[in-house]
Design a protein around this nucleic acid. Structure first.
Lengths: 413, 413
DNA sequence: TAGTATCGGTCAAAGGTCGA
DNA sequence: ATCGACCTTTGACCGATACT
């Protein structure tokens, strides 16, 4: 629908430069600010439509004219209509008879000085109702934001004063990790596109980048702080003074993630999209259907691009958070691995499975991993396992779950 | 006389899509402080609106723009309008069509560097340098392309027929790596912004992501092939049949890098920018001046964004190559490390230093690493070492260098 | 003080809307 | 489907302010 119309001359336009008269008139109208009343009085001797002698509303397309002739001229030019006169091309064009012959009306428009060049291209619709923006993909920012809100960030509810918080011991760190991993599962289940995936892929996605999600969450929580990393259970890891290995990771979180994110002043929307981009990683090894994941990630990053409002460089800066995120996450996993090997820490099966990628067959003849069972239990796959079965998992587990999505559970059972 | 006509048609411009041209032009204007005269001369073809390529009336809200886009941006921000695109959010925004899609126009405003913070009360700025926004920098696509061309890709010169190529043995792989690392140094020296950095930072940058550059180069060379990775010295690594560890890395290069890049059909420009983004990594540990590196990377990714010609999602897809690139590079380094530890391979000092990060103090009382010496020799730092000194380095070294930048050497000596 | 840059506002004349 | 009374948006122009 673009402006090809304008350069086609519908009618023989037989004169060039029209008049100078309208000038004064127009000035007159200009200077009145309360033009509605003013116009009414000056109507009689003042502005008349050059085409039909109706009351003029100003100069349009080069000629003083009424709204009717203005609209008529625009429509005629836009649609490139070819009119014909049924009579002698000498029809009278006045207020009463102006609609009786469109040929003669248009001719008179040109005669009065209207120029087709003054008609512009069609513009955007003003009424948003007419503009049906396509959702483009199925993933939506709203869904992501909603999923995100299932993971409380603890900004306001808890005291923002860092000095009142306790320093985490190893057990507290593991506890926090476990909670966050379970929240990650909850998060994923808020996304319909995730729930529709093959069970193996769901497990795969949840596993493969779980460490990055932990780090990402920690970085986000720690945005307001300069010298600690804030855990999900409200404990803190001081950047200096903690165990060497731990504080090394903490320091990197601060330097490589918190600082850039703080500088960017990342928004909730952006963060929600970023998490989805990390999550839908098509290069997870062994994915059944990497193309679908790839497409979901594409949607997520297009959403991120929109969420950045296209501020120059912002989208790129946000995406460039991902390599250091991956790097720090790996360092954390390595640290965990080492601690595990050296027997310095006892991790429960969820941590082992999700972070270190170990299969923990806790029960005889039971090949399902913890994660698989958990997804089965509350996922879209129908299943008859009962919540009690999960008691075999560590304490505090059910409480975390029921906290994060109590209503969902109740309605399901 | 009335203003609206003046911009309508009479001198209907016929410039099509200058695309990237305005950028340089505007830089030019920026840097000229005596802009009054300068502007006068360049007005005709000079300062153009970043958004619609109409004649610019100056910088508005952070971007060189015309009055139309200026007003549009202000109104949009003030009224907090949410527009929708009726099409694919890919509308062309130029002088003629800028009113056809407000969504895409606003998007392009942001993309051009307009900031909504500038709309409100930026009046009270103390320091005009702050309001000037980003100088948008010195890094240019042309320089990057030129630097890139110093690294022949071997597409056409060599036979594209893969069946005639020999399978690489371990020594061939190392040889190729060494060549490529030296070419990386050459590449870097083509970039003035690099040469201006502190010597430690130069060494740091060259070292820290060298493995990624090797992988990136290999991926690019291998774009035309499905079942081999092509090395820089024209040997190939078959995806299957090579040593287990080697082919594992090769397979990942193919799956996670070559395939996506091939699907995107990456252009030379884009590749040049991508390499610069990988190179200017502000999170290298121990960087003297990370802020400068950060800024250079920002410039590089803004250039990449421009190079993608605004194809929706393309820029993001390219940036999302980086995490797997990092991941594969690490796997390669780990493989090398293991081979080194197990005594399976003898690597020369350059590989040890750049890929495994080992300091090889080959000479007594000589604390300079190989890389430092090499940078000194040919870098901007004046230095009296002679080429012969480099003979202590492995054979084939000088030949590679003189091949890649013979003229430079000759003129320097 | 004059000059430059970039904010803000104004309003004629473009545009679109939608019941008749 | 067109008309036209009525409303919205556009952008050329100009004034104000802060520095040089």
């Amino acid at each position: 629908m673009c402006g090809v119309y304008s350069y086609l001359a519908p009618l023989s336009q037989t004169f060039a430069e029209p008049v100078i008269a309208p000038l004064e008139t127009v000035h007159f109208v200009h200077s009145s600010l309360e033009s509605s009343i003013f116009k009414f009085f000056t109507d009689g001797g003042g502005s008349r439509c050059f085409i039909c002698a109706d009351r003029a509303t100003g100069k349009h397309y080069g000629a003083s004219s009424c709204d009717g002739c203005k609209g008529f001229f625009r429509r005629s030019i836009r649609s490139n209509q070819k009119y014909n006169c049924r009579f002698n091309r000498q029809c009278i064009v006045d207020k009463d008879k102006r609609n009786q012959c469109r040929y003669c009306r248009l001719r008179k428009c040109f005669k009065a000085g209207m120029r087709k060049e003054a008609v512009q291209n069609e513009r955007d619709y003003i009424n948003p109702h007419r503009a049906k923006g396509q959702p483009v993909g199925t993933l939506s920012v709203d869904v992501l934001l909603q999923a995100e809100s299932s993971r409380p960030v603890l900004f306001s509810p808890q005291s923002p004063d860092v000095s009142t918080k306790k320093t985490a011991c190893v057990g507290d760190v593991f506890e926090s990790m476990k909670q966050q991993l379970l929240l990650l599962v909850e998060w994923a289940k808020h996304i319909p596109e995730f729930c529709g995936l093959h069970i193996d892929d769901r497990v795969n996605l949840l596993r493969t980048h779980s460490a990055e999600h932990l780090i990402l969450g920690a970085a986000r929580r720690s945005l307001p702080y300069n010298d600690v990393i804030l855990l999900g259970n409200d404990f803190v890891i001081p950047l200096r003074g903690a165990g060497l290995e731990v504080s090394r990771v903490a320091l990197r979180i601060q330097e490589e993630l918190v600082k850039p994110l703080r500088e960017l002043d990342i928004t909730d929307k952006e963060f929600a999209c970023l998490r989805a981009i990390v999550f839908f990683a098509p290069d997870c090894p062994g994915l059944e259907n990497p193309q679908v994941i790839r497409y979901l990630r594409l949607q997520a990053h297009v959403l991120l691009e929109e969420a950045t409002c296209e501020q120059r460089g912002r989208f790129g800066e946000l995406l460039l958070i991902l390599p250091p995120l991956q790097s720090v996450a790996w360092q954390m996993v390595e640290t965990l691995h080492l601690a595990q090997l050296l027997g310095e820490a006892r991790m429960d099966s969820l941590l082992l499975e999700m972070l270190l990628g170990e299969e923990t067959a806790t029960e005889e003849g039971q090949s399902l991993t913890f994660l698989q069972r958990f997804l089965h239990l509350t996922g879209s796959d129908l299943n008859c396992e009962r919540r009690n079965d999960l008691r075999s998992s560590p304490a505090n587990f059910t409480s975390v779950i029921s906290h994060s999505s109590a209503s969902k559970y109740q309605s399901n059972q």
